[in-house]
């Protein structure tokens, strides 16, 4: 049967996708020309963090139209969980020089942290948002802010108010030179992991039965229910995936910056939310794109000596995009439903 399980890309890479791919490639070349190789690798790394967080915002908004303001703090918890696994049970202090061992530790770290964070997401949805599913929209929004405070304070109670250093398991001098810049293998690893996770997400949402159920529920919850979709399960699963991805971003943060602090989720969450809106909220490709745009603005502002103006640049671009494209860069055009 041609209809099932043949391997085809979900995004249907035919001619119609070419302009989009060309635009992305062109933007990367321009970005490279503007900031040079060193900052280019930084931009990709930071952009990857924002993109991973933004995916959770956009998926949750897509399915229950809630701006989950606690999502940045879920990312923060991810950082602490990763930090704790490395320094607690694993008892690591410095770098791991054996590449095979490093690989094992990293795989385990991502698996365990993402599972724990996914479970946290399900827990938050079940007890904070589900009881308010039919309440006026302001109620879950304010609850989300409450959940944000709860997560921050729990982490502060455990780890204190100051930044906590994490073991640097990547040796800082594991670098290679290219085009006159020194690039860390860590940067390459982070971008590779982020891109792999995003592709996996696209394949999952685009091609699996559960992914179809998620998209159907996002479009018409009642109709999806009439197809036999368990709405509660599907929404819980959406939170699982979004929070696991935020967990991955949290690990990346700890690996890259070497610390975690209880309020790191505030700005990162705000930027990632901006990224999701910029890309077109509800659209996963848009969220990833928005994450990289914001990463670029931040790095470029620093490169040209205006790092204190980076927020102005980010929110200025957001305003401009919303003025000219209210649904975001890749947002659904309004009035599509017949």
């Amino acid at each position: 049967m041609q209809t099932q399980r043949s391997i085809r890309l979900p995004a249907r890479l035919d001619g119609s996708q070419l302009p989009f791919v060309a635009a992305i490639a062109g933007s990367l070349v321009v970005a490279y020309a503007l900031v040079g190789p060193q900052q280019f690798s930084n931009f990709l790394t930071i952009g990857a963090v924002y993109a991973l967080i933004a995916l959770g915002y956009t998926m949750v908004y897509g399915i229950i139209e809630l701006i989950n303001f606690a999502h940045g703090d879920v990312f923060m918890v991810g950082s602490f969980v990763a930090l704790w696994i490395l320094s607690g049970p694993l008892g690591l202090h410095g770098s791991i020089d054996n590449p095979a061992l490093l690989a094992v530790v990293l795989v385990g770290l991502f698996l365990v942290t993402m599972l724990i964070l996914g479970a946290l997401g399900i827990f938050i949805e079940r007890f904070a948002y589900r009881p308010l599913r039919n309440a006026p929209r302001l109620a879950p929004l304010i609850t989300a802010i409450g959940v944000s405070f709860i997560l921050q304070n729990i982490m502060q109670a455990f780890f204190g108010p100051s930044p906590v250093n994490s073991p640097q398991i990547f040796t800082l001098n594991a670098r290679f030179d290219v085009a006159g810049a020194s690039i860390g293998y860590l940067n390459v690893f982070i971008v590779a992991v982020a891109v792999a996770l995003m592709i996996a997400l696209q394949l999952f949402v685009g091609r699996t039965r559960l992914g179809r159920a998620m998209r159907s529920t996002a479009q018409d919850r009642e109709a999806a229910e009439l197809m036999g979709v368990d709405i509660n399960l599907t929404i819980a699963f959406t939170f699982f995936i979004g929070s696991a991805l935020a967990g991955a971003a949290g690990i990346v943060w700890v690996l890259y910056f070497g610390y975690a602090v209880f309020n790191q989720g505030f700005y990162a969450g705000l930027f990632a939310f901006t990224a999701a809106v910029l890309g077109g909220i509800g659209n996963t490709t848009g969220a990833a794109l928005g994450g990289f745009v914001i990463g670029f603005l931040q790095v470029a502002a620093a490169q040209y000596g205006y790092s204190r103006w980076s927020e102005v640049a980010i929110f200025g671009v957001l305003v401009l995009v919303l003025v000219f494209r209210p649904t975001g860069l890749l947002g659904q055009q309004l009035g599509e439903r017949a």
Partner: peptide, 22 residues
């Protein structure tokens, strides 16, 4: 109540959500 952003085939697959792929 067609799922407008799913393909026709995907809409039908949603209809069979409770059943096996075969």
């Amino acid at each position: 109540r067609i799922f407008s952003r799913l393909t026709v085939l995907e809409n039908l697959q949603m209809g069979g959500y409770t059943r096996s792929p075969r």
